[in-house]
Amino acid sequence: MPADAGVRHPPHLYAYDLVDGRYEPVADDAEELIVDKPFDIRPRLRDTAP
């Protein structure tokens, strides 16, 4: 549990894409973030958080 590790709020991942000089959100998730640009990546939060 995140609280057991001293984390008060569950972690959350966000991904942004730079479009015309501005960042636009393309994905956000608390479990698994899936993006396909610039390459396919699918990190699971439980694998990256303490």
Rank of each mutant, 00 (worst) to 15 (best):
I34K: 15
V26H: 01
P11D: 02
R42I: 04
R46A: 13
R8A: 09
Y14Q: 09
F39H: 07
D17F: 07
M1T: 13
K37Q: 13
V26E: 00
D36M: 05
V19C: 10
T48A: 13
I34D: 11
D20R: 11
L18D: 05
I34F: 10
T48F: 12
D29W: 02
A27C: 02
P2L: 12
A30Y: 10
R42V: 05
D20S: 15
F39Y: 08
R22G: 02
R8P: 02
G21Y: 01
R8M: 06
L13P: 01
M1E: 14
L13Q: 00
D47C: 07
V26Y: 01
D36V: 10
P11M: 04
A5K: 08
E31S: 10
A27W: 00
R46N: 08
D17W: 06
D36L: 07
V19M: 08
R8D: 07
D47E: 14
V35E: 05
E32S: 09
P38K: 07
M1F: 13
V26Q: 01
E31R: 14
D17K: 14
D17S: 12
P50H: 05
D29K: 03
V19Y: 07
I41V: 13
D47A: 11
K37G: 09
D47I: 05
L18T: 04
I41C: 10
A30Q: 13
Y14G: 04
P11Y: 05
H12M: 12
R46C: 08
P43L: 01
D40S: 12
D47P: 05
I34E: 11
E24K: 05
L45C: 04
L18P: 04
E32P: 03
V7K: 06
I34S: 13
E31D: 14
Y23C: 01
P25Y: 02
Y14P: 02
P38T: 04
